[in-house]
Design a protein around this nucleic acid. Structure first.
Lengths: 344, 344
DNA sequence: GCATATCGTGGCAGCGCTAACATCAACATG
DNA sequence: CATGTTGATGTTAGCGCTGCCACGATATGC
């Protein structure tokens, strides 16, 4: 952006000239180098203000071999979770003084991941955050010899790459415990696609909680996160007479399922209780308002950036080793009106 | 990204040395400069492959004073429209060989817009796409002396800055005409927030269509896009006995409204017909499946990038003037089951 | 009082690339 | 055959900034 009404944007030398110092001193002021006298610093800052000087990020990056942009490999969808996570990351990155460059994964496999990461590497990003909720994406990521600092969201915790994720197992336990607490003895589960990592955690939490209570797990049903798949699963469940409680893998599927029940005269929560997952904004306004598990995506974004900055600075010499953030963000149960004690 | 198992990434000179040419010739090959002999070109490309050479974007930008990244000023929300538009833009930009850097608008006003654009300018973007659905954002944008090529989405068409948008007036007309065609004589409208540009277009289309049919417009109701506000408007409408058809400003509000009607024993579409706007993925699975107006956000993204590249190249000397894309993307009516002829 | 550590500052080199000009052969023109 | 013309290449300067080293000027040691 050029300074108002001038031909050419001011560069560091212009500032230096105006402040009567060398361009190097200007650079020092801008980079918080300690040894600059307060008087000089003030003079330089005044010149910066006067010329409306903005440092050139490319020159900076070239000379200093580092950039102030982080890349995000996102997933090509507007599913609530990934989209919210992206926003959370952007907010946190901006707060830390970083720009955010995004690339969506057109195909979730090794080659898609490679080309996404290359696209970001070509932009000289300082690090990348990969929103890789699918096992294939996570596997591709772990198998890659990547030369930049990286952090994954929802990927397997424990690999070489730090991962931040909402604790899906705990979330599922919260949901199932709530239903058991109401008196249900059989809790069905409609999971997300089997190639999603979240799906596994939620299944594990569901199974584990039932086992802990000495109860058998009914057959697992699998959906694809869409309201349509929830609707279809709902049609199947509507045919049975032993369904009193369902834990749906996300709110959209819960929504579709409620529609199927409604069509078959099955009342929620009177006949069947349903718990969702995510707490999308609409959850509160479904018929009935949906009891669900809330995930704090802003917190996920914040921890991603914290972990990423740590990784970036670890590559640097002066790195003041920051503590690694806790990789697990705790979900919470949001009680609404789609759950009740079973009849009789 | 460093080449596998080597200390330092290859630079242009390494390629030049291996190919037995000067670095300049390598640059020529990489930039499709015409005067390079086929044999030399092949030798250079082979060296590039062998060294896994990737040009440094910062050095390129610095030397050539242009970058291959476009900035997107997005709106801090996961509302379906803006989020989908962002994805559409990313896809189109990637197809054109551009990276995408995003900034969200924390506050929708002049200063928020200024800081968002400055954040992007600091990243030396080649141009910006502003997703500015609010009047305040559009106004701020138009008032700014910005020094980069820019395109706006959903902003007022006709300013200095090219704007691409879905034709809201047409969309609203489609919705209202459909309801009138079914025999309804009074069509209510729950609009979005008054500070959104889309809102105005939809109101205009609604009013205009009623006027054309010689019908009076019932009092306008105003919501905030959320299911909650649709629910509240639904409660108000449920108290009246003259409501047979409602055109909701978006699908979420339609959803909330349907819940309110349901609670009051008002059947959709038997007692009241509802048309939404957007065609969110869930629309098909509501009770009943929602008739709505679909917006093609991918097409919006494509035209944005087309218009932006045109603007960027207009600043360049060699610009082969591309045609400006049609700024209006046509919406379509998606018929489902939330509308029917009025009773009696 | 002089040598020595420290601070504030400037100079120089170079990050990896593109633009502009210079060069040199091969060919066409009168 | 001298002269222009073209095509393919190399050479030289930067783009705007940071890293490193050097320099003079104070503050500190004995």
């Amino acid at each position: 952006m050029r300074p108002t009404s001038q031909g050419r944007a001011a560069v560091m030398n212009d500032v230096a000239r105006l402040a009567g110092v060398s361009h190097q001193t200007v650079s020092r002021v801008l980079n918080q180098h300690p040894s600059v006298s307060p008087a000089t610093r003030e003079r330089v800052l005044e010149a910066v203000r006067q010329l409306n000087y903005r440092p050139n990020a490319m020159a900076r990056g070239l000379a200093g071999r580092r950039s102030r942009v982080i890349g995000v490999v996102s997933f090509d969808t507007i599913l609530y979770g990934p989209a919210s996570t992206l926003l959370g990351i952007e907010r946190a990155a901006r707060a830390a003084g970083y720009g955010v460059s995004i690339v969506t994964l057109e195909q979730v496999d090794h080659s898609g991941m490679v080309s996404a990461l290359e696209a970001l590497a070509d932009q000289s990003v300082a690090g990348v955050v990969v929103i890789a909720p699918q096992t294939a994406a996570a596997a591709a990521l772990h198998s890659l010899p990547l030369g930049v600092a990286a952090v994954a969201v929802e990927a397997v915790v424990g690999g070489e790459i730090p991962a931040i994720s909402v604790d899906q197992v705990t979330g599922a336990r919260l949901a199932v415990q709530h239903l058991l607490g109401l008196g249900h003895r059989k809790v069905w589960h409609l999971s997300g696609p089997r190639d999603w990592l979240e799906t596994h955690g939620r299944i594990e939490g569901w199974r584990g909680t039932l086992e802990d209570a000495g109860l058998p797990a009914p057959p697992l049903m699998t959906g694809d996160w869409s309201a349509r798949s929830g609707y279809q699963a709902g049609l199947e469940l509507a045919r049975r007479d032993d369904v009193t409680a369902v834990f749906a893998g996300n709110d959209q599927m819960a929504l579709g399922m409620m529609r199927a029940f409604h069509e078959h005269g099955i009342r929620v929560p009177d006949d069947v209780s349903i718990v969702g997952f995510d707490d999308i904004p609409e959850a509160e306004f479904l018929s009935p308002p949906l009891t669900t598990i809330r995930q704090d995506f802003d917190e996920v974004g914040r921890r991603c950036i914290a972990a990423l900055l740590r990784a970036i600075e670890a590559d640097l010499p002066e790195g003041p080793d920051r503590p690694a953030p806790d990789p697990h963000v705790a979900p919470t149960l949001v009680l609404r009106r789609s759950t009740a004690a079973p009849k009789g």
